[in-house]
Design a protein around this nucleic acid. Sequence first.
DNA 1: GTGAAAGCGCTAACAC
DNA 2: GTGTTAGCGCTTTCAC
Lengths: 347, 347
Amino acid sequence: MAATRRPTLADVAREVGVSAKTVSRVLNEDGPSSPQTRERVLAAVAKLGFQPNLMARNIRVGGPDTTVGLVVPDLGNPFFGTVAGGMEDVVRGRGLTLLMGSSAEDPERERVLTETFLARRVSILMVVPAFGADHRYLKVPRAAGLPVVFIDRPGVGLSTDCVVSSNRAGVHDGVSHLAAQGHRRIGFIGDLPAKLYTRRERLAGYTSALEEAGLPYDRALVTGAHGQETAAAATTKLLALADPPTALFAGNNIVAMGVVAQLTRAGRKDVALVAFDDLPLAEVLEPALTVVAQDPAAIGEAAARTALARLDGDRSRARTVTVPTRLVVRASSRPPRRGRTPAEAGS
Amino acid sequence: MAATRRPTLADVAREVGVSAKTVSRVLNEDGPSSPQTRERVLAAVAKLGFQPNLMARNIRVGGPDTTVGLVVPDLGNPFFGTVAGGMEDVVRGRGLTLLMGSSAEDPERERVLTETFLARRVSILMVVPAFGADHRYLKVPRAAGLPVVFIDRPGVGLSTDCVVSSNRAGVHDGVSHLAAQGHRRIGFIGDLPAKLYTRRERLAGYTSALEEAGLPYDRALVTGAHGQETAAAATTKLLALADPPTALFAGNNIVAMGVVAQLTRAGRKDVALVAFDDLPLAEVLEPALTVVAQDPAAIGEAAARTALARLDGDRSRARTVTVPTRLVVRASSRPPRRGRTPAEAGS
DNA sequence: GTGAAAGCGCTAACAC
DNA sequence: GTGTTAGCGCTTTCAC
């Protein structure tokens, strides 16, 4: 089975005995065409298995491609998949196709992927910035009218639209809830690196909640993790402190899984826990996990709507859309054990 | 901020005072070029923010685009995200970019997405077929040399490479394990619709394991679900039978979550459970979940390698690659309660 | 209702 | 080392 050349418009035209332009007219429902030619063109298209070459078309038409490029740091994280799903639902209504690629949280790969999207002239570019990436190179395409939206974290060196969760307020709610339950030593296990936007924002929510509750900030109670294993290790470390926490706040879904796993392995059901971002089985865990739920689909939808407005000529100042989080109280955020002071809890 | 036209090769050439071809030579490291012109071209490129139009390039060169198109039915399911990650790792080494889009398990959307990939002349097409889709329209592009690989399920009407999990053998192992624990009434909750490839294959593993164990096949013990809620309902239904199962087999990760949730809500820790496909928190559940683990990254890698071999001229017959599953025994597959017959278990 | 010619942005094939 | 010409597959423009 030799690799035959893909048929072109000209091939179809030759087959039918008309000009290329006539075939083009029929296929794009441009200008008029007699029913007979229409018929015969369609037949030839089917016979040859002709598929118009969109690249050639776009080149001639000059406009952008009817695609939306989305760069995410991790294809396996359902959070980003759900964000993408929300986006898709919105852009599809405009005839746009969402194409997603992964940066693997690597600035270099993010850049390469972004450039291939630019080189393919996507209509909209959505990016979940990898830590350490610099986005100044997006200034020119953006100035040329390409809508660029950052998701989950703001980009660096480029002022453009951005859609994020209410990180501060969400964590504030979760930590306040723990404080209201009577916890006075609350550990925080955030993202890594510590300078990551979501880590900083969520930590700010943590500190403001402590302050509001009149609790002291203890640097020893704050740490970070990347991946389940390091989150488990961080849990162990915090609980081994001389004056250990009676409650933990997990800064994201992956960290939460590591913490839950470690608490289970260690048999520490006495330690309260609240996690940022919901987990599919949160309510089934024992104890059921209290979470600050994000709304990834809403994030995707908001990003898509913002970008479409830009496409429609919205030239207003770059805005940041904050999608609210929601505290879902389940069993894991119970009060500290009665009759035991934090100092005794580890014994 | 008016939408300025994106600069072209000709713009750069004009800026420098050379011909377009010279700029092209510099950028593609084609033919020779003096260090001075090189320098000045690069400067102009940076100044104008020129980004080559890959569509125009591909058109001229005639070859396919350096992209791999992947169609999945659900962006939010980490199984497919992990498959994509495995693929990416392999194709990136060949300078190919993986682009993923969602069919939402809808044959029509699958077709539209696939056609846009074809129209953009991807180098490789990977598809997780939506239920009910017909893939005969892929015959022409495939005959023209486009590698097409089906993932997770075979396509319909097109004989081409396919990469799947060892569904039958995997389920056989899981059900045999339950039988070996002493279970004689084992419920099966598979995918929906019942004609879905994975459902049929997994059910075949179930029946063969029953047969091997000398257990009768009871139609009342076999059902299906799509989504967590229906899986929970199916669980309730099975457990309400006059002669209920003492063990359940969940046919996929989503079904497993629904079953686990329902068993937990109902407080039915006496019911044994084995699930197809691992869950992130499987070992942390109570009881820890016994699973037949798939290897999604390996599936993606195998698919990518197969497709690359085709790209390299492999013209051998279409083959089906089966990626082995692995039984991970945890606590949830414990023996039935002693001293109680199945008939008493519901009381 | 249809066709011929020109051109989108780029590169192959040849000049010089 | 560099420029010219032609042409990829398609659509625009203008003719008939």
